[in-house]
Amino acid sequence: MKIPKTILISRTDNIGDVVLTLPMAGIIKKYFPDILIGFLGRAYTKDIIESCVFVDEFIDFNDFLNKSVSICGKRIEAIIHVLPDPVIAKRAFFLAIPQRIGTTNRIYHWLYCNKLIRLSRKNSDLHEAQLNLKLLSCLSIHQQFSFPEIYSSYGFCASPALPESLHAQISKDKFNVIFHPKSKGNGKEWPLEHYIALAKLLDKDKFNVFITGTKQEEPKLEILFSQIGDLVINLCGKLSLKVFVSFIANCDGLVASGTGPIHVAAALRIHALGIFPSIKPIHPGRWQPIGQNAYTFCNQTECNLCKKQISCECMQNIEPNAIAKKLEELYLLKFPVK
């Protein structure tokens, strides 16, 4: 395959999926520094994609379908369909992008792509980020990348600076930790009563606790605020995505289930404490946060409710004490006993 001068990475789903795809841009730049990289995504994830120093241009999904697009003014020479999508595959074909890379297990890729890679995610033991990188075999990059190689390739940085009113809420004398309890229904969630118990376990003189989420999720957290409102700071619906990324970067840790912010935290190298079920394919082996300060909590026994509802027994069995113990260890790393 001829090495293209421009490559479009297509991943048009959620924040966590996008974050775990960003190392692809970093690794392409490592092997081929002069390639210009575009990233095709939804407007919702634009701020995440533009936070990656290895992405030269964000291209909006709707613009790609309806307009003539380029990467930094240059023709798109290759597209990698990281997330298979028949509409995008067909559009890339009719735009006559010279190199169109997809996987063999999508029938429409046989119609619209001219470079097919055998890749099955369903039964693989590899992490999602490692599976993404398998698609780079189209560039003769066949290495299986380790987690350290992946997190060193994020190229993820936070901007802009926090508003002073928000920055003032971050304590210099405490461990600032974010609880992000909800997942917009995209994953298994740790029970709210466990977040409540965790907040009560943490010493208020040591920990500054923030609750984040969307405005739509705030009513679902009413029981949490009614019981521990005096122990936490409610930021639900008060932060744009760009400001939220900067806020995460300025905190010390984040606790969440398998949702986008846990991957953002890991990419920003703060302490990311991810809580996961054991059932495949949503287990930590596939979706754990990847970072030098990432930690995973998982009950190894599957329950019968894992496939049926957002909260289940194997998530309930992950004790708040385990998270509190880890946060206490991290507090002592920040403030060593003299």
Score class of each variant (00 low, 15 high):
Met1Thr: 10
Lys2Thr: 13
Pro4Asp: 09
Ile7Ser: 02
Thr12Cys: 10
Asn14Cys: 10
Val18Ile: 14
Val19Phe: 08
Leu20Phe: 10
Lys29Ala: 09
Lys30Pro: 00
Phe32Ile: 06
Ile37His: 05
Asp47Ser: 15
Cys52Met: 09
Val53Thr: 13
Val55Pro: 00
Phe58Tyr: 15
Phe58Asn: 05
Phe61Gly: 03
Phe64Gly: 01
Phe64Asn: 03
Leu65Thr: 03
Leu65Ser: 04
Cys72Asn: 14
Ile76Asn: 08
Glu77Pro: 02
Pro86Leu: 13
Pro86Thr: 14
Ile88Asn: 04
Lys90His: 10
Ala92Cys: 12
Ala92Ser: 15
Phe93His: 15
Ala96Trp: 12
Thr104Gln: 09
Ile107Trp: 14
Asn114Val: 06
Arg118Pro: 00
Leu119Ser: 03
Arg121Tyr: 13
Lys122Glu: 13
Gln130Asp: 05
Asn132Leu: 07
Leu133Trp: 04
Ser137Trp: 00
Ser140Met: 12
Ser140Gly: 10
Ile141Leu: 08
His142Met: 09
Gln143Met: 02
Phe145Ile: 04
Phe145Gln: 02
Phe147His: 07
Ile150Tyr: 03
Ser153Val: 03
Phe156Tyr: 12
Phe156Asn: 07
Ser165Val: 11
Lys172Met: 06
Asn176Lys: 02
His180Phe: 13
His180Met: 09
Lys184Gly: 14
Lys184His: 13
Gly187Tyr: 11
Gly187Trp: 05
Glu189His: 04
Trp190Phe: 10
Pro191Gly: 10
Tyr195Leu: 03
Leu198Cys: 03
Leu201Asn: 07
Leu201Glu: 09
Leu201Ala: 08
Lys204Tyr: 04
Lys204Val: 08
Lys204Ile: 11
Asp205Tyr: 10
Phe207Pro: 00
Asn208Asp: 05
Gly213Asn: 11
Glu217Phe: 07
Glu218Leu: 12
Glu222Trp: 03
Glu222Lys: 15
Leu224Gln: 03
Phe225Glu: 05
Phe225Val: 08
Asn234Gly: 09
Gly237Gln: 12
Leu241Gln: 08
Leu241Asp: 08
Lys242Trp: 03
Ser246Arg: 02
Ser246His: 02
Phe247His: 05
Gly253Asn: 02
Val255Ile: 12
Ala256Phe: 01
Gly258Thr: 07
Gly260Tyr: 01
Gly260Phe: 02
Ile262Phe: 01
His263Asn: 09
His271Leu: 00
Ser278Cys: 09
His283Cys: 11
Pro284Thr: 05
Gly285Pro: 02
Gln288Leu: 07
Ile290Val: 14
Asn293Tyr: 13
Ala294Gln: 05
Lys307Thr: 14
Lys308Cys: 07
Cys312Ser: 14
Cys314Thr: 08
Cys314Asp: 06
Glu319Thr: 07
Pro320Leu: 00
Lys325Asp: 11
Lys334Phe: 00
